[in-house]
Computed example of a mutant assay.
Amino acid sequence: MKTIIETPNFNAKDSLTDFVKLHVEKLETLSDQIVESRVFLKLDKFDNKENKVCEIKVSLPGNDLFASKHADSFEEAVTLSVDALKHQLKRWKHA
């Protein structure tokens, strides 16, 4: 599985990109048909704490899965997005 991480308007530290890769690649244990995952880490311009956004698009043959979560840290947003995708992958496998 190929993992692409995009961080528009800021430079992500290596520790953050390593964290993202580690968690996103765990999705591969649920399905060996994942072709690519594309991760977007963004900062929203909200005044509240939950201004970190993680959007993940997972490409499968004939289908794409998508999850987007807001949190007060990128790590938490990534974890929430990956959890949402795990549920989607389980439903996709049984459909």
Rank of each mutant, 00 (worst) to 15 (best):
M1P: 08
M1A: 05
K2A: 09
K2W: 02
T3L: 11
T3G: 11
I4H: 10
I4N: 08
E6M: 06
E6H: 13
E6V: 03
E6R: 14
T7K: 15
T7H: 04
N9F: 08
N9I: 02
N9S: 07
F10W: 15
N11W: 00
N11I: 05
N11F: 01
A12Y: 05
D14Q: 14
D14E: 12
S15T: 05
D18F: 13
F19T: 04
F19N: 01
K21T: 08
L22N: 14
L22E: 15
L22M: 10
L22A: 14
H23G: 00
V24I: 05
L27N: 04
L27V: 06
L27D: 10
L27C: 12
E28Y: 02
T29I: 06
T29R: 10
L30A: 09
L30G: 08
L30T: 09
S31Y: 01
S31W: 02
S31D: 04
D32Q: 06
Q33C: 03
I34H: 10
I34K: 13
V35A: 09
E36C: 04
E36N: 05
S37V: 12
S37A: 15
S37W: 01
S37F: 10
R38L: 13
V39D: 11
F40G: 13
K42V: 07
L43R: 14
L43E: 07
F46Q: 12
F46D: 11
F46M: 12
F46P: 00
D47I: 12
D47R: 15
D47H: 15
D47T: 14
N48G: 11
K49C: 08
K49F: 09
E50A: 15
E50W: 03
K52T: 01
K52H: 02
K52D: 00
V53T: 12
V53Y: 09
V53K: 08
C54F: 03
E55C: 02
E55Y: 03
I56D: 06
I56S: 15
I56H: 14
K57Q: 11
K57W: 08
K57R: 15
S59Y: 03
L60I: 00
L60V: 07
L60Q: 09
P61H: 06
P61V: 04
P61K: 10
G62M: 02
G62S: 07
G62F: 01
D64E: 13
D64L: 07
D64V: 05
L65A: 12
F66M: 08
A67P: 02
K69G: 04
H70W: 10
H70N: 14
A71I: 06
A71E: 06
D72Q: 15
D72F: 10
F74S: 06
E75Q: 15
E75M: 13
V78M: 01
V78P: 13
V78F: 09
V78I: 11
T79C: 04
T79N: 11
L80V: 03
V82T: 00
V82I: 04
D83L: 15
D83W: 09
D83E: 15
L85P: 08
L85F: 02
K86A: 02
K86V: 03
Q88L: 13
Q88V: 09
L89A: 04
L89E: 03
K90M: 05
K90L: 07
R91W: 01
W92G: 04
W92L: 05
W92M: 00
K93N: 09
K93G: 04
H94D: 07
A95M: 08
A95D: 06
